[in-house]
Design a binder for these strands. Structure first.
Lengths: 162, 162
DNA sequence: CAATCTACGACCATTTTGGTCTTGCTTCCA
DNA sequence: TGGAAGCAAGACCAAAATGGTCGTAGATTG
């Protein structure tokens, strides 16, 4: 539970890939703003993702202004901004919608049914923390190897089969 | 997305309720270890939750040793430990299973498909943080009003319709 | 104008979630 | 001592979310 959808996963993978391409293009001296553009098909093949599904995801991201698209031969998608300026939070929210840890935190801010869920206020804190955390991780952070990450995460807190 | 299931919600509500009953029973001077026991039906009625569904959830929690059950007339469920010693993390995991933010962090620790998800390592950090956060919030924390919570959470970070 | 690519919406399959029903066993108490 | 109250457990079904496909239309380039 409490997992990202595959779509969000795919989206993050694709952005990571495009970020890498942008770096390569920059190194090669390209100066167009579409540098590093790749087609949905290329990315799908690179990661063995269903191409049509990825296409839809990329369209979503383009609509959210995280990617810029270019139709036609040799068209494709490229990052709309530097990878360091795109947070994983934006990506996930664009694809999966807003994330609420409790089903009863609505847009109205309050619970729809009177005295039912008095519980949730402390959990809001968790919700906000997740938001903050994800906001602090950019697409650029995804491309580097995990070496420098804090040792804290090495411990197996999370395991055990369902 | 990234939301708790209703089952987990219900479970937390029920535990909160039982924690409150335990406090009341203690104040009344009861000294049995089953103090504050309530039937699944009672709790379900208090929160307008489908009784049979709640029953199943409570059974799950009992199996996880978070509750102790007592059959027979005037039987029911009570907290197996003081509310302050039951973390929301335990509850959620007992009901929803282990929580992995990415679909590809498996028990084996690595991704099942070779080069597919190089992305996820930074997200593990998020995963661990959520775990830590939830572990730090006990059922006892759920019963008090939200007054003392940090003002940080007041801001509407989380909203916007899907 | 043909090939390549995005854009978009309808559609279907699978999985997960939420919820119900049935049967059986335990405990209490009148 | 037997029935009412309650838990235990598993089969089962319905609804919703997710994952994935298809077809068509419009942009772009060579």
């Amino acid at each position: 539970m409490l997992r990202l959808t595959k779509k969000a996963d795919y989206g993050l993978m694709a952005l990571k890939y495009l970020a890498e391409q942008a770096v390569l293009a920059e190194q090669a001296g390209a100066d167009l703003n579409l540098s590093g553009a790749r087609s949905a098909k290329d990315i799908a093949e690179a990661y063995h993702i269903p191409p049509q599904l990825l296409a839809k995801i990329l369209q979503t991201l383009a609509r959210a202004n995280l990617l810029i698209s270019h139709a036609g031969t040799n068209g494709g998608y490229a990052l709309a901004r530097p990878a360091a300026d795109i947070s994983t939070f934006e990506v996930i929210r664009a694809i999966d919608g807003p994330l609420f840890i409790t089903s009863c935190i609505t847009i109205h801010g309050a619970c729809d049914l009177a005295g039912h869920c008095t519980i949730k206020e402390p959990l809001r804190k968790v919700n906000d923390s997740i938001t903050t955390l994800l906001s602090g991780i950019s697409v650029a952070d995804l491309i580097e190897p995990a070496d420098h990450l804090p040792a804290a995460m090495a411990g197996g807190l999370v395991n055990i089969e369902r």
